[in-house]
């Protein structure tokens, strides 16, 4: 009887151990990077890498971000028009689009686009570097690969994501305005005035602020999945997928938490 229970317990623990390890690994990863922050402050980081990632995650991602946000703004305006025209309140579309874009959709869409754009790229890049022993090379050069590879990405993302969110917000509002002007025949001035009335500085700034945690999550998820990818080409592919899926999940969870926190201060 006793050996059997023990066996069962062992079997169960065998199943749970990887889960437990999966849980502690990201924490350890974050800890390693955090431990390197003082060193980063002392030495700084390679400007070239930072510029490369700012270019990748900012400049190059801008067109797709603008396009997606513009289209989302249009979609929302069209849907809003269908509903609000029942009450003869088409002008409120401006309020709805402006508020939703600035508060929620802008930061969220940008984060999701960047997940696909940057998160997967980070994972694949680091996974390949690992496969190619570049990570080992860094380590034997006495350089910590975690911080060396993560910091430029993180700082570039922390700068580019809020900027992209600002661009995305404007694009979304313009999308709504485009629909408002062409389909609903609202004058641009009226639409613009309604939008400005609906949004206030706090809403706008709090929306943009959201993109900082999102940037951190996308970068960490991407880099973590890259570092933990299996050492073969399939592993790199899976790592990239995992990065995208997990950071989408994390972003949505973070969004919920942030929304709740914002509700405490009345927004």
């Amino acid at each position: 009887m006793k050996p059997k229970t023990e066996q069962q317990l062992r079997a169960i623990s065998r199943h749970f151990r990887p889960l437990l390890q999966d849980g502690t690994r990201p924490v350890e990863f974050i800890g390693r990077i955090a431990a390197e922050v003082p060193d980063l402050l002392r030495h700084g980081m390679r400007g070239r890498d930072f510029r490369y990632y700012l270019d990748l995650c900012g400049v190059q991602a801008l067109p797709i971000v603008l396009l997606i946000c513009l289209l989302m703004g249009m979609v929302m305006a069209i849907n809003g028009q269908i509903q609000l025209s029942k009450f003869g309140q088409e002008l409120l579309v401006a309020d709805a689009v402006g508020l939703v874009v600035v508060k929620e959709l802008g930061p969220l869409m940008v984060a999701l686009v960047m997940t696909g754009w940057a998160g997967s790229a980070f994972a694949a890049e680091i996974g390949t570097m690992k496969l190619d022993e570049q990570i080992c090379a860094l380590e034997t050069m006495g350089i910590r690969p975690e911080s060396f590879l993560v910091f430029p990405k993180l700082s570039a993302m922390l700068l580019s994501m809020p900027l992209l969110t600002i661009f995305g917000n404007v694009a979304g509002i313009l999308g709504g305005m485009l629909v408002g002007i062409t389909i609903m025949k609202i004058t641009p001035v009226a639409y613009w005035t309604r939008t400005l009335e609906a949004i206030n500085i706090t809403t706008f700034v709090l929306g943009v602020l959201k993109s900082f945690p999102f940037a951190i999550l996308v970068t960490f998820a991407g880099c973590f999945c890259g570092f933990n990818a299996a050492n073969n080409s399939q592993g790199v592919g899976r790592g990239a997928t995992k990065a995208v899926v997990s950071s989408i999940f994390l972003i949505v969870v973070a969004d919920v938490i942030i929304t709740v926190l914002y509700s405490f201060i009345g927004y």
Partner: peptide, 20 residues
Amino acid sequence: RKIMREFGVTYQGGALFSSM
């Protein structure tokens, strides 16, 4: 890391950093 700096390692594929 200090010990590591005292030797050099050449990896199978060269392991050059592809971004540089």
